[in-house]
Amino acid sequence: MEKTLLTVSGLAKSFGRDEAAVSVLANLTFDLPAGGSLALMGRSGSGKSTLLNMLCGLEPPDAGELTLFGQDHRHADWQRLRRGRIGVVFQEANLMPTLSLLDNVRLRASLAGQPEAHCQHWLDVLDIGDLAHRFPDQVSGGQRQRAALAMVFAMSPDLILADEPTGSLDRVTADEVADSLFRLQADTGCALILATHDAELASRCQSTLDLAHRTTAQDAAVSKP
């Protein structure tokens, strides 16, 4: 029996107030085991990013339960979790422009309380070790995303939230970045929640949550391969 990392039940979120309120998510229920991977599917505006924000505590849910690492979302020390256990990767702009790739990784590791000595190692692992002292604007988009992954893995997270991590990359580069992501996820045994509208990428996850269809259904359908 795998240990459950994340439990979500009846989660709801809307924006705006009163009549103008737009419900983005309603009555969402799913869970994720430790080391598992889940793809969030759906068109733009279907609530993928909102859900990721709630999963790392940047936005509180309006209703429902969210339990992560056994902590209730209302009482979780989200800052601590984000610092050491939850890694977030965005589509782009994951790096401080004023720091070199290595310094970005070191910064992230130091926040997570991880030794900075391993930082170069993670860049090497992601094949950008020789670019360590370059600045983000001096490397390609794919290399920036690899650096973003290096940052995330350098903090040795338990959960990675990735919001369209390959969304702005060409197919070949995107595949290379995705390969690295899934390889390292498997190697480190951390869990992964990946928001994407790329069905092929989603299919590489153990399960898929289709937010677009769910909006018409009463509860979330978690399909297992």
Binding site: C56, L58, Q79, R82, R83, M96, L111
Partner: peptide, 13 residues
Amino acid sequence: LWYFRLLEVWGMA
């Protein structure tokens, strides 16, 4: 601002 928010995502208060 994005970069300051990034710090927040990274767990800074």
